[in-house]
Amino acid sequence: MADFRTSSQRERWIFQPHDLTERWAAANQRAAETLAQYGTTRLKVGSLDGSVHSPDHVEGSSDVKPLSYEEEQLTRVFYEQKIQEVCAAFKFPHKIQATAIIYFKRFYLQWSVMEHHPKHIMLTCVYTSCKVEENHVSAEELGKGIQQDHQIILNNEIILLKTLDFDLIVYAPYRSIEGFVDDLEGFCREDNSALQRLKELHQTAISYADKMMLTDAPLLYTPGQLALAALHKSNDTLKVFNFERYLETIFSRQHSDCPVEHFVQSINAIHYLVDQLKIPTVKDMRHVDRKLKHCWDRSSHDEHKKKEKKSKHKSKRTSTDAQLNG
């Protein structure tokens, strides 16, 4: 459906900032409680059905610490950016990564990364996005391409679909950017040099939108707002057209229920989110990753401690994971 106004995204998946923080905090707290009670946060997902069960109690030392709210946030950004890498490696159409990232974001509004491993969910999001965007790739092919067991992807498909409540049609800013660039051709028709630079403007806006996808902005703003923010930023650098005047033309053309000032505020808020974005490096992630692994698997924690005693070398598992993560 091309009509965002009547979409499930607009109706159910655009939030206020406090909605997001409440949901993340609730998921984080629930996982922390599970950890305290069972010694692990790893929920059991029925391999066929996607049903979720409490973990079995794990015996052993109880000094495993849950991820903090901030660490969860860092983890999500890290894997969202992984989604972009994976999709680029497969040369998928741009829409696929955007859809997958939005699925990923929606999924972790309801679950903690300690409950469902983000590496698995990330792959399942890419897989489902491919199915939805009619670029079907088999789980096996996808798994092979990134040296992961494709069964992981399939195991999580149903839980993902259920968590998304089967709202699978999503709107990313890219198509709106394209629409605005088309429209700008009319707006700039008197100005030859501007017309020639529209392509460059478009490209820069796309890269900026890619960054936006890693922030909370897609859960807070409409694709049209995101697109205009991307064009605004891109135009700031390239100085192709008069943005304020263009914005006025758009608003005079169609009555909007939202005043221009309000719109400008949204654009500024989106810029702020992008400026704040910090993409964690593998090094940043090492500590969080280790914690996450222990939350998942107590034995690895104990094993890890033993190994640490023996030598300061990384365990083999950590290095394999670092490879994938890095």
Partner: peptide
């Protein structure tokens, strides 16, 4: 759907459209 390829894409397509339609 096909053995080992998860939920039927046809089902997914039908559901995703129906979820938006009223």
């Amino acid at each position: 759907s096909k053995e080992g390829d998860g939920v039927s894409p046809t089902a997914i397509r039908e559901i995703m459209l129906l979820r938006e339609i009223n």
